[in-house]
Design a protein around this nucleic acid. Structure first.
Lengths: 228, 228
DNA sequence: ATTCTAAATGAACATCATTCATTTAGTGAA
DNA sequence: TTCACTAAATGAATGATGTTCATTTAGAAT
């Protein structure tokens, strides 16, 4: 059998191969595929190595740690966040489109949120590019440069928290045996999302979506008000 | 030596002791002390057991998992969140006081955020009590019950994200070698927080605080506007 | 007296990320 | 050409950590 058609089961012999087997891009794609199949619980260095037909220790020639792998995945996913509206739509609409896209992408990748929120963007080119597009949208809308980053951070904070909330179970506010002790909260939970005349046209598909729409509209309106 | 004055080094012999050594309350307090001394990295079941002068396996007679320990700690900390303003202050001010307190408490306990955001409150009495107080404040301000939970969830989402951001390193937006490729973002980062005439009176102690104040004011104003 | 349950010990496990010695392939300098 | 150096692979070992299980002991219930 030709080396180029090496079967998955065959062992490669020790030593540097003529053609490099691994690369950041291959590791990123394999990690993403692994996550989509088995979730983040399935994303272990051993499983990642196996999916690349490589020994686990080989990965460490390309990344310093598993955190590095997560950063690669994070940056790749950031390319899926839709910033296109910042070039041709009004600021309020563009922010909404961006925020929805951003939340949707990372709601499916919760374990990356600490990575995005805490690690410098220095080695995340797609992330940096995303920020440039957003910044341009803010500038075009007349935002003073000194306030833009704070506004973006505020919106991102809400987006990250909303990504978590999108994964909350339906019974998250179940008060159980304490219900009689907290009647007003229990009643509010029971009435959550009941259509009123005003909200009859709303389109939220579930509770988490409704909370996200409400909070996003509020923050965007509040931020827009600080501009005038 | 009396059993009551047992030294830390002595081993207890196997078998059920006359007086129970462990309890949820003791485990909670020991976990909290451990975290305050060594952080969440230091909160291992082995270290927790050692601090209680107990074998690690003994903990599992009182909690099902480490997640359970985190839930105990989370609920205990929720008692530190200040909801007092909801009884005697205007809604806008009360929400601000509550949100600041909430963020400050959990910014020091980041690993608990997934626990709060994803686990049912059913076994977290202090958390439930906190929600009742907040709900009462919303009701007193004239909020319709059907909208209260969504509003609380939206605010909490922002608070959780802001707790993360409060732990971000100072160089989180360092674009490094990509700076020339993203000039507007880099400039906005450089100008972040520069005092303008309008913000000259602001009191933010650092960038994260400034973003939190901006976002909170925006969301509170936006939410208040939906009431009228 | 006997049985059952709760709560402790201590040993063992399984899972993981990570490190290290070793091997092999290419590259650049002497 | 030779030699040294670096890059990239293997495979074995390590250390940390959460968790389980058999066993022991104490008190409560039958």
């Amino acid at each position: 059998m030709e080396p180029a058609q090496r079967a998955v089961q065959e062992r490669r012999r020790a030593g540097r191969p003529s053609q490099a087997v691994l690369s950041s891009a291959r590791i990123t794609k394999a990690a993403l595929k692994l996550v989509s199949h088995s979730g983040y619980k399935g994303l272990t260095m051993a499983a990642l190595a196996k999916s690349l037909n490589v020994a686990p220790s080989a990965l460490y020639n390309h990344v310093h740690s598993k955190q590095d792998v997560l950063l690669l995945v994070e940056d790749h996913l950031m390319g899926r966040v839709d910033v296109s509206a910042f070039t041709d739509r009004p600021w309020v609409e563009a922010v909404s489109i961006w925020a929805h896209s951003y939340r949707n992408v990372f709601a499916a990748h919760l374990p990356l949120i600490p990575v995005i929120a805490l690690l410098p963007v220095t080695n995340a080119p797609k992330t940096i590019t995303m920020y440039e597009a957003v910044t341009n949208g803010f500038l075009a809308a007349g935002w003073p440069p000194s306030a833009i980053i704070d506004a973006i951070v505020a919106l991102e904070s809400f987006i990250y928290g909303s990504a978590y909330d999108a994964n909350a179970p339906g019974n998250i506010f179940d008060t159980g045996t304490m219900a009689p002790a907290v009647p007003n909260f229990s009643a509010a939970v029971a009435r959550r999302g009941l259509k009123s005349a005003e909200t009859a046209g709303a389109t939220a598909r579930n509770d988490a979506d409704a909370a996200f729409e409400l909070g996003l509209a509020a923050m965007v309106a509040g931020l827009a008000a600080t501009l005038t």
